[in-house]
């Protein structure tokens, strides 16, 4: 149980996918303007990560490894991720149209979000068990959401800040992102 907690918290904080591993930067910068779309995106990514892990793990160990097809991971995993993204998209369109609209192009872009493929591949690389893999994906998803939610708060403050003309827009956003990343570096060594 303790080992699982360590995996969960380190995936969330010390090895935060966005702020420590530079994965999934595109939705991190794109969807963090508003709190509700940031949290919606976080939930969608978390859902896709968990589902993708739940399917890719058995596929890897039961189908690919016995046939000596480990090199096939990437192709099959991308297929599975694309499937779940498409599922989330159709489901969201029906159930929460406003969230579907505010996520816009970033919703299908979860398919190419390297954080999602990253977590499924890292689970295999770290030779986690099934439960550990699911917990790791959950932690990674929560970490992604945490980063987005924190950053959306920062960006809201930035709207009222008097930013020098040259830095307005993207440059200021990137600088703020780096500072948030620095704050997450404070967690390093917490669980070692």
């Amino acid at each position: 149980m303790k080992a699982l907690m360590v995996i969960l918290l380190s995936a969330m904080l010390t090895d935060n996918f966005v702020l420590s591993k530079f994965m999934g930067i595109c939705p991190f910068l794109g969807v963090s303007k508003k709190l509700d779309s940031a949290s919606g995106m976080g939930i969608a990514v978390t859902f896709v990560m968990i589902c993708a892990t739940a399917v890719t793990y058995p596929i890897h160990h039961a189908v690919l490894v016995p046939n000596g097809l480990e090199y096939f991971d990437t192709v099959v995993f991308i297929l599975v991720i694309a499937l779940f993204v498409q599922l989330v998209e159709t489901a969201l369109k029906k159930t929460i149209p406003s969230l579907y609209k505010s996520l816009g192009v970033y919703l299908p872009l979860i398919t190419t979000n390297c954080a999602v493929l990253g977590v499924t591949v890292l689970n295999i690389d770290n030779s986690y068990s099934f439960v550990q893999s699911i917990v790791n994906s959950f932690g990674a998803g929560l970490g992604f959401m945490l980063a987005l939610v924190i950053f959306s708060g920062v960006r809201k403050k930035m709207e009222y800040a008097d930013i020098p003309e040259t830095f307005k827009g993207v440059p200021a956003t990137l600088i703020a992102a780096s500072i948030v990343s620095v704050s997450f570096m404070g967690f390093s060594g917490l669980f070692s």
Binding site: I59, N67, F72, V76, L79, V80, L87, A91, K94
Partner: peptide, 20 residues
């Protein structure tokens, strides 16, 4: 393997698009 995975995904997605 890839064919079977693709087919399964296609069936799932068709079902989902009917449902939603």
């Amino acid at each position: 393997i890839l064919g079977v995975c693709g087919l399964a995904a296609a069936i799932l997605l068709t079902a989902a698009s009917k449902l939603f």
